[in-house]
Design a protein around this nucleic acid. Structure first.
Lengths: 237, 237
DNA sequence: TATATACGGTACCGGCGAGTTTCGGAACAC
DNA sequence: GTGTTCCGAAACTCGCCGGTACCGTATATA
């Protein structure tokens, strides 16, 4: 119970900027102050997303230390100056790139509602979702050794990758509680992290692929028993 | 040069040697094969363990990319030449250091045997074991981004850190099956990875401490239900 | 048109770190 | 002893990469 709160309101942190435009630091005059009285060619805002996407690709492939600014620029078909006009350093670029990662296909307000916890969880297993998750995990893998020494990056990564997964599971679990399907005294913080934990471990440590069978096994053989739905033969797959 | 060194230093092939803090290498036969026809001062074998330990410390603190040879040499109070006389490159040194990681206090042949699965698992929760596990996880965290591109390192890390954890759990589970405490058609590969997965995730991703309460929660609220021992009130903690 | 800035591309600078060499001294084989 | 190799320490080479400056061109304001 006491540890719940850390994962309960993680949205309170900074990144409210949905637009890929630059963040607060260094740049004296971000989006609103400058362009009013600025002359000359304006920044091409369409380049931002290309650069951030390129940064995430490189990050996922070679990690933070293996990533060079030239790689990102080349992948985005941009000049290095174009990057440094937007972000003051490699670190800031990476922080922005991670912060702007999108859920890509999962909408927290429009989750499957099948009437049963198992149905909801199975319904969330979709190839695009799996692929999106693997990409994010590869990005996280490239950042892990930095998190300990860069609290800002750790915060951003948590809000963009870690927290959303547990949050979705919590919503499904809470619904099941509300409809009386499962008990109401469960350790939701623990149970909501079962699947993220085992998927992450399988990807990063065991280096084995995450497929549908594995995800179904987690649901039927671990999560459902943990919430008291396992003994009935429903989930014998 | 490389061939000679490979035969010379006691690496992964070395048997029970390479204890931390330079245990007596009395049985160290590694210097047997080569020095037959060698003249001059022999390699001081007691330096090897110091260097490997220093490498693991630095690795755990700053990760592979943050680690420099000078850091390791300084921590081991050795000269860089002393390192390069033993390992041809930074990568080889790290591979050897990881391969020589020891379980330090867990002996697979002498596990607790309390008569119940829960008792065995609870008995394995000991502060030294937790600390040892956290150190290994920090080392792993510093290597993750490399594993994808260095299969040899991935292999060594798997054998030294990943596999032993699951193996212990499997032994305990198999015992419980043999004595008829739990069913014999369980997915042991999945269940044996529950605890390693959740501990790893909590350490690396959530960046929260692993304490006794957390480990007990995993056992009582996740693992025991998964093996069919949850509904009885034994583990309600 | 005149001015100012962004664009992709490239050359350049400075620091850092892997790996090598050298040094005075010490430990072993012969 | 004598020669060879090891030791810790420090100086050195060399390539890589973050970051800057500059080019010719493109696109905006006035």
């Amino acid at each position: 119970m006491t540890q719940l709160d850390l994962e309960e309101h993680p949205t309170s942190a900074a990144p409210a900027n949905a637009a890929p435009a630059n963040a607060a630091p260094a740049n004296a005059a971000p989006a609103n102050a400058v362009p009013a009285n600025r002359v000359g060619r304006p920044l091409d805002v369409t380049r931002d997303a290309d650069i951030l996407d390129a940064a995430l690709d490189v990050l996922a492939e070679v990690g933070y230390d293996g990533m060079t600014i030239d790689m990102v620029a080349a992948r985005a078909k941009a000049g290095k100056a174009t990057l440094y006009r937007r972000w003051p350093s490699k670190t800031e670029l990476v922080i922005d790139a991670v912060a702007c990662m999108k859920n890509s296909d999962i909408d927290p307000d429009n989750l499957p509602d099948t009437g049963t916890l198992r149905g909801d969880m199975i319904a969330m297993i979709k190839p695009p979702t799996i692929r999106d998750g693997e990409k994010k995990l590869r990005v996280m893998a490239g950042l892990i050794s930095l998190l300990a020494r860069n609290p800002e990056l750790a915060d951003v990564a948590h809000n963009a990758v870690i927290a959303p997964r547990a949050r979705l599971n919590r919503i499904l679990l809470q619904r099941a509680i509300d409809r009386g399907e499962i008990r109401d005294d469960l350790d939701l913080a623990l149970i909501a992290n079962i699947s993220p934990s085992m998927v992450t471990y399988r990807t990063m440590m065991l280096r084995k692929p995450v497929d549908r069978d594995f995800l179904v096994s987690i649901i039927d053989k671990v999560i459902l028993p943990a919430v008291g739905l396992g003994s009935e033969d429903a989930g014998r797959r």
